[in-house]
Design a protein around this nucleic acid. Structure first.
Length: 193
DNA sequence: GCAAGGATATCG
DNA sequence: GATATCCTTGCA
C-alpha cells in the first residue's frame, strides 16, 4: 500500500508529449477507452511505467504515476525491487547479486518507489497489467482513498519531466503535480517552483 | 556525465 | 525491413 505523491497529466491527442499524439496505436489503445483503467508501457527498453486513464471513452488522456510513498508492505516492495533488478541482469554472479541486495537493504523506505520505473518495480507491475480496472475493489492493483488521519497533501504544480522532445510550449505547462511535503518524490521540489 | 536496453513509430 | 528515439535509472 502506498500513497501517490507525484503525477503527470498527459491530456488529449494534441499534447505533443503524450503517447496519443500519433493517434490510436496498438500500444496506447486503452488511453482512448473508458477512465480508471491502467496503461503500463515500457520506457527506454528497461522500465515499466504505470498510467491511469482519465477522460471519457474516445478522449485520450492519462496520469503518469511518477512516485509513491510506501505506507504498508515495505519489505514486499523491497523484495519486488530486488526481483526486478536481478531479472534485468544479463550475467548473473553471486557477488553482484549480493551487492544489489545490500544496496536495496540500505535504501530508505521512502525511496523505494520514488520514480515512475520504481513504482512499477516496487508493486510488481508490467505491461501485462494494462487494461486492469483500477477502480474495481477486487482488482489486485487498485486506487483507494487516502486513509483518514493521513496528512493533507500540499499540492504544487510544475513542468513535466523528460519531455523536451515535445517542444518548449508543451514542456513549460505545469502539469506535474506533487505533494511538496513528501520525501518520496522522483525529483525534489526546487524552491520557487 | 553517460551507458544500458528493447519496443515503437516513422521513414525508405 | 532498418533506424532514431524514447514520460529512466544507477553507476562512473
Amino acid at each position: 500500500v502506498g500513497r501517490i505523491v507525484e503525477l503527470e497529466a498527459y491530456i488529449g491527442g494534441d499534447d505533443a508529449a503524450s503517447h496519443a499524439r500519433f493517434g490510436r496505436t496498438a500500444r496506447n489503445a486503452v488511453m482512448f477507452g473508458p477512465p480508471g483503467i491502467a496503461y503500463v508501457y515500457l520506457v527506454y527498453g528497461m522500465y515499466d511505467c504505470l498510467n491511469i486513464v482519465t477522460e471519457p471513452d474516445g478522449d485520450p488522456a492519462a496520469l503518469l504515476v511518477r512516485a509513491v510513498e510506501p505506507l504498508e508492505g515495505v519489505e514486499a516492495m523491497r523484495t519486488a525491487r530486488l526481483e526486478r533488478a536481478l531479472a534485468r541482469r544479463r550475467r548473473r554472479d553471486a557477488a553482484g547479486d549480493a551487492r544489489l541486495s545490500e544496496r536495496l537493504d540500505a535504501l530508505p523506505a521512502a525511496r523505494l518507489a520514488a520514480g515512475p520505473g520504481l513504482v512499477a518495480a516496487a508493486f510488481g507491475l508490467d505491461r501485462d497489467d494494462t487494461g486492469r480496472d483500477l477502480c474495481d475493489p477486487r482488482s489486485p492493483i487498485r486506487l483507494e482513498h487516502v486513509p483518514p488521519g493521513e496528512r493533507p497533501a500540499t499540492v504544487r504544480a510544475m513542468p513535466r519531466i523528460g519531455i523536451g522532445y515535445a517542444g518548449a510550449a508543451w514542456a513549460e505547462r505545469p502539469w506535474r503535480l506533487v505533494d511538496g511535503a513528501s520525501r518520496s518524490l522522483s525529483v525534489p521540489v526546487r524552491s520557487g517552483s
